[in-house]
């Protein structure tokens, strides 16, 4: 079990099994961050929504703001994996990208050919 003690503004971590555990414990106490994942509506796609993620963890307290910003968005199909959906969320400078492709309804075969061509 990971334990963190705080005394006089300093952190003492014990019980970590590796160095990652140490940095995780420090960050979890001082500046907890999470990778944000949600979905964004797609217009003209084979699917109504596309899953998205923040490319890096964002501060935990920014999550509600980021979610409400993403709720205003929609994207037009086709959507490619790792296509940028928002350049920055909640003023963090961290981008949000798609994590799964969504083909367009009409141009479906064309996109398929494009994908095969690389």
């Amino acid at each position: 079990m990971l334990k963190v003690r705080t005394a006089a503004g300093r952190l003492a971590v014990e019980g970590n099994a590796c160095r990652r555990g140490l940095s995780y414990a420090q960050e979890e106490v001082l500046n907890p961050r999470r990778v944000l994942t949600t979905t964004v509506p797609v217009v003209g796609g084979k699917r109504p929504v596309v899953p998205v993620r923040s490319v890096a963890p964002i501060p935990k307290e920014s999550i509600p703001q980021a979610l409400s910003e993403l709720r205003q968005l929609f994207v037009r199909a086709p959507v490619k994996v790792h296509q940028v959906i928002a350049q920055s969320v909640a003023g963090t400078g961290i981008a949000v990208v798609a994590t799964w492709p969504v083909l367009a309804i009409e141009a479906e075969e064309e996109v398929q050919r494009e994908k095969e061509a690389g």
Partner: peptide
């Protein structure tokens, strides 16, 4: 499974389910 937490063991990075499948 659009949440993160995949690939930490195999790829040493935190992927979402769709990215891991991809």
């Amino acid at each position: 499974c659009i949440h993160p937490g995949f690939g930490l063991k195999l790829y040493k990075e935190e992927l979402t389910g769709p990215e891991y499948a991809w």
